[in-house]
Design a protein around this nucleic acid. Structure first.
Lengths: 231, 231
DNA sequence: GTCTATAGTCGGATAGAC
DNA sequence: GTCTATCCGACTATAGAC
């Protein structure tokens, strides 16, 4: 998995850019479905409607293509939940929001995560879910950036919010543990279980809303009252 | 690592079973670390201290060895949390336990799961965690049995308990959603984040206890009061 | 039962024509 | 930039001696 920096030619030619795009789309789907190893470059080229060497030409190597795919996922994540995280950090630094507002922000960020993961939009929900699952199974070098993105956009704001809500220091172990469980409330819905266990074949915007409400309500139940300071 | 020179002489008595066992141990570790595809039979044979064809001899094929490894994991799970699940089901059928008892049982089963996953005992915690993560990433045929085991031992009891606690039917969608979030409370600790995010290098019995308490306390906060009937 | 040697296959990468 | 044909390494599995 660690080849030297290849000569990776991202030239922006009209005809080339189209082939490049098609390879990227096919790779996103195939890597998610089969994983890095099982996805063969032959199958990939066929699906993309290009010839085999095109992969080496545009991305240097199979792994170069893989890294590019992961980077695309990261950009999607960053664009969707990055601004929200930044806003929360700014608001926390500028003022000392009341308890209800802190809980609302916590709700917002966790609902944002599942909204992003379960949204049946462009690159396909199942693809994203598979990629997300693989991130945990294979602590790949390419995935470290994705993990870092999640920590920056989700864990850090979540941690600061819970520190305020519990009245503990941000690096207190109890805060970290509650960050984990709070994330867990939403994270279960990012795995296989959503379709399988709930018996849902599709997840429309209405069902996303139901899940978000479920998570949000429980966050309120856990944090809205002062009692939670003890835990 | 290497056994003392006392029985260095291969008298070919239990030699077959011994080799089989060593292959199985090496496979458990290697499949967890590298996954099915990346783990090569050559590496495996070397680590197990046997020759290459021994794998075909004892397990028929690489995939046969893989299935056997997964079955071992399933047996471990079944032995640890199966009896608890059976007991809960029996108690629910025989009587109508008070609210506090229902919550206690819910606590017990979720704490049992993380206890099993994080216990630094025999086959190694990290191995189990990796296998668990892979189960989600690769909906393998061999893993379906493991998923079925988890549903039978965790999801079903959890579902019945939450149905009683909320006063809803067991197949109500709201019950299923709360089963998901409740499992989520514990499931986050079965992934990579435990060591990484919490900054722990090892997880001793004391830390397992802390995690269990965290989860249990929040289950109580969510279910102990009648308010939860609304969600 | 154990081992050496090898068969047969597949997949990633490359050379070089167009 | 695109393609055909090919190389080469790695892998699983097996044949057959001991």
């Amino acid at each position: 998995m660690a080849d030297p920096p290849t000569r990776h030619r991202p030239t922006t030619q009209p005809r080339g850019e189209d082939a490049r795009r098609r390879i990227l789309d096919a790779a996103l789907e195939l890597f998610a479905r089969d994983g890095f190893d099982r996805a063969s470059t032959r199958d990939l080229a066929e699906r993309a409607g290009v010839n085999l060497p095109a992969i080496q030409y545009y991305f240097g190597s199979k792994e170069g293509l893989y890294r590019t795919v992961v980077e695309e996922i990261i950009h999607l994540m960053e664009a969707r939940i990055g601004p929200l995280a930044a806003h929360i950090l700014a608001e926390l630094e500028a003022a000392n929001p009341p308890r209800a507002r802190l809980v609302a922000m916590l709700r917002e960020i966790m609902e944002g995560v599942v909204g992003l993961m379960l949204d049946d939009a462009a690159p396909g929900r199942q693809v994203r879910q598979k990629f997300f699952a693989r991130m945990e199974a294979e602590p790949d070098a390419a995935f470290e950036a994705l993990q870092a993105c999640m920590i920056r956009s989700v864990c850090v704001p979540c941690r600061l919010l819970i520190a305020r809500l519990t009245g503990l220091e941000a690096d207190d172990e109890r805060v970290l543990l509650r960050v984990m469980t709070t994330i867990g409330l939403a994270k279960v819905f990012c795995g296989w279980g959503v379709a399988g266990f709930l018996g849902w074949t599709t997840i429309g915007p209405d069902r996303v809303r139901i899940i978000q409400t479920t998570i949000g309500d429980q966050i309120e139940a856990l944090f809205l009252h002062e009692r939670s300071t003890i835990a």
